[in-house]
Simulated scan of single mutants.
Amino acid sequence: MKLPVRNWLAPLGLAFLLAACQPAATERPQLHLTGDTMGTYYSVKIVGAEDGQRDALQAEIDRRLERVNEQMSTYRKTSELSRFNRHEDATPFAVSADTARVVTAALQLGRQTEGALDVTVGPLVNLWGFGPDARPTEIPSDERLAEARAQTGLEHLSVHIRAEGEFLQKSLTGLYVDLSAIAKGYGVDVVSEYLSEQGLTNHLVEIGGEVRTRGVNAHGQDWRIAVERPGPGEGMVQQVVALANTSVATSGDYRNYYELDGKRLSHTLDPATGRPITHQLASVTVIHPSCMMADGLATALTVMGTERALAFAEEQGLAVYLLTKTGDGFRVDMSSAFEKYLRG
């Protein structure tokens, strides 16, 4: 499905339309918890929770998100993932069940997307200055690019589940895994699953724009979430979706980029070339039951470009919304599975 869209003015992201998008109705009590994690913010809305639960819930949410950072951050030298990245031989490396679970999902998505999602592109992420290393002062040479690409490849990474525990293994000593394309979504799932375990089954969890919903909002309705329009400025609503018991994630080149030698360099790298993407697909929004999977799929589809991404979404039955830059604005494409979520 294609719709013409012109003259958009604000950056794409995910914002919440709560009372403003819903008719007046009796509201149930709602807690709103916020904090910082994974280099961004989190926002948690819990319907039916009492204010007396605030401190305990916030403390446990912070504890669980801190554990994800300690497991999977590439910015922390002591994290499991950082220690695995420094592991310079092919012997199995013990990790937590959580890290093994996320890497397994990343490998699954890598196969499903034919390599469009590749969590072993860490050497390339660092080379282009989108990881813990400083940004380069010049465009990397073909030689340096070839050297970095030689240290990547999903075929060199494996997960092993044994009676004594979970292990990661590499067949290249320089393999460097970067889970940034999937870990935020996993963190959202962790918080949502914790709240459900506590019987708090009406909630919304967001980490830096990746969202998972459960149950209904304070008005007893599906959660309304707005996708914002791309461009300078903030808060311009492009499309509203209604969600219940599912997740939504957005990826694009409109936020994390820099300019070097007169070129605009996106943080999204194409594993097939080792370079930042250059096509006109500005953003991808994916709705999926798992926020971890939505997060990874949004990145992979961004790598693919508009036509390939839309074909892939239809083939896989994915709910996907694409914004592509044109000469006079943006074009909207959506998969048939996405249409049922539209509101307004």
Rank of each mutant, 00 (worst) to 15 (best):
K77N: 10
M293E: 12
R212H: 12
T299A: 00
T91H: 13
T299Q: 03
S247A: 15
D51W: 08
A116N: 05
V303L: 06
G329W: 09
L109V: 08
T120R: 04
S192F: 03
L204E: 01
A163H: 14
E315H: 12
E143F: 04
E164Y: 00
A90Q: 11
G153P: 08
H32M: 05
L281I: 06
T246H: 03
D98L: 04
N7I: 12
A272M: 06
G39A: 07
Q238T: 08
A300D: 02
A59Y: 06
T173N: 11
T137C: 09
E155F: 02
R162F: 00
L323V: 14
G274L: 12
G165L: 14
M1T: 13
R212Y: 09
S266E: 10
G187I: 01
V188S: 04
L175N: 05
T34W: 01
V119N: 02
V303A: 04
E164A: 11
G262C: 08
Q22E: 09
A94I: 07
S158Y: 04
R331S: 13
V303C: 09
G327T: 12
L301G: 07
V286A: 06
H279A: 05
D89G: 10
A311E: 15
M38Y: 03
V95N: 04
V320E: 05
R144H: 14
P289Q: 11
R111N: 07
L175Y: 05
E114P: 00
D328F: 10
D189W: 15
G129I: 12
D270K: 00
T299E: 00
Y321A: 03
T324F: 01
D222E: 14
G153A: 11
T137N: 13
V284N: 00
A19T: 14
G329L: 03
K325I: 07
D189R: 14
A49S: 02
G262T: 11
G220H: 12
T326N: 14
P29A: 10
Y258V: 02
